[in-house]
């Protein structure tokens, strides 16, 4: 098991970038690129990551990066990969780095296409559960009850489960991670790099201005999401579903999750939820754990 001390010191997200203070995306990308190394090409759709790079003619990303239209990350990755393969450069990793808007919503078709046609790449959805870049609008990943600028009285629908949709494509590797567990994220990225074919990773990325919490709490939020079972960390590989970290105990029943209120109450976006909303959220979480308990017994 790799420890924090063992992580490479190379930095591919440079200082003086345009990310908000306390941004989870740069934390996630730093760790990802430590695992993938310099021989990586990134494609980035419209998202916070397009902004974080800083302004032309400067960039804060130190590996080759293509910016592409909102719905096109996975399709552009297919092109990059095909061109690399045609030039015999199969040792280069192609990373599509998209937000939840670009993955759950507008980019879903292109993602599904690239997974189905076997593009050899890693697709990462860094999930901040909303359109943060455009000013905190609801997305297909926004949870029930959350305030956004297009759900002023709280979202009335549940989020969809994109990782399940991805798993239905029968690809070799699917993993979920949290920025609060960097060695777990690093290990998963390393593993994804070594596997041929389409790999999908989803990283929970709590957004201070979007979720309405203090910017020093970004990592704490990502940790609490896992400890309360609001976010599950797992790997799906060779038909086997394995839960990691605290998620393991929550799913197999050996660990009592922290009350989800601990996580919700730290976030301004859940400030106005009612008792009924809280019941609904808890019910939904129980159902999700139960679903995965059964699924992990099946696989």
């Amino acid at each position: 098991m790799v420890s924090i001390k063992d992580l490479p010191e190379n930095e591919y997200v440079l200082e003086g970038n345009a990310a908000c203070p306390g941004c989870p995306i740069t934390i996630a990308l730093r760790t990802m690129l430590k695992a993938l190394g310099k021989d990586t090409i990134i494609t980035v759709p419209a998202s916070c990551s397009a902004v974080i790079q800083s302004l032309y003619p400067k960039t804060s990303f130190a590996v080759p990066t293509l910016n592409i239209a909102f719905e096109a990350a996975a399709a552009s990755a297919s092109g990059i990969e095909a061109a690399l393969h045609a030039q015999g450069k199969d040792d280069i990793t192609v990373l599509a780095w998209a937000g939840d808007g670009g993955s759950y919503d507008i980019g879903l078709q292109a993602l599904s296409g690239a997974l189905e046609r076997g593009t050899n790449f890693i697709y990462v959805c860094y999930n901040n559960q909303m359109y943060s870049n455009t000013g905190v609008q609801r997305s297909g990943a926004t949870p029930y009850g959350a305030w956004t600028t297009t759900t002023w009285t709280g979202k009335k629908e549940k989020q969809k489960n994109l990782a399940e949709i991805v798993m239905a494509h029968d690809i070799p590797y699917v993993a979920t991670a949290s920025i609060a567990y960097p060695t777990d994220l690093y290990r998963k990225a390393k593993k994804a790099k070594e596997i041929k074919g389409p790999k999908y990773m989803e990283i929970i990325a709590p957004c201070p201005p979007g979720w309405r919490f203090d910017m020093s709490k970004t990592v704490e939020m990502a940790r609490l999401a896992v400890e309360t079972g609001a976010w599950l960390m797992y790997e799906f590989e060779n038909g086997k579903l394995t839960f990691n970290g605290p998620s393991k105990g929550i799913i197999d029943g050996s660990r009592e999750p922290k009350p989800v209120e601990d996580w919700l109450r730290m976030q301004g976006r859940f400030k106005n939820i009612t008792d009924d909303d809280l019941k609904e959220i808890k019910k939904e979480l129980k159902e999700r754990w139960e679903f995965y308990r059964k699924k992990s017994q099946l696989f």
Partner: peptide, 12 residues
């Protein structure tokens, strides 16, 4: 996606 992948390939 046809054009997006041509862009990705040509850019590579």
């Amino acid at each position: 996606s046809a054009m997006a992948s041509c862009i990705g390939a040509e850019a590579t």
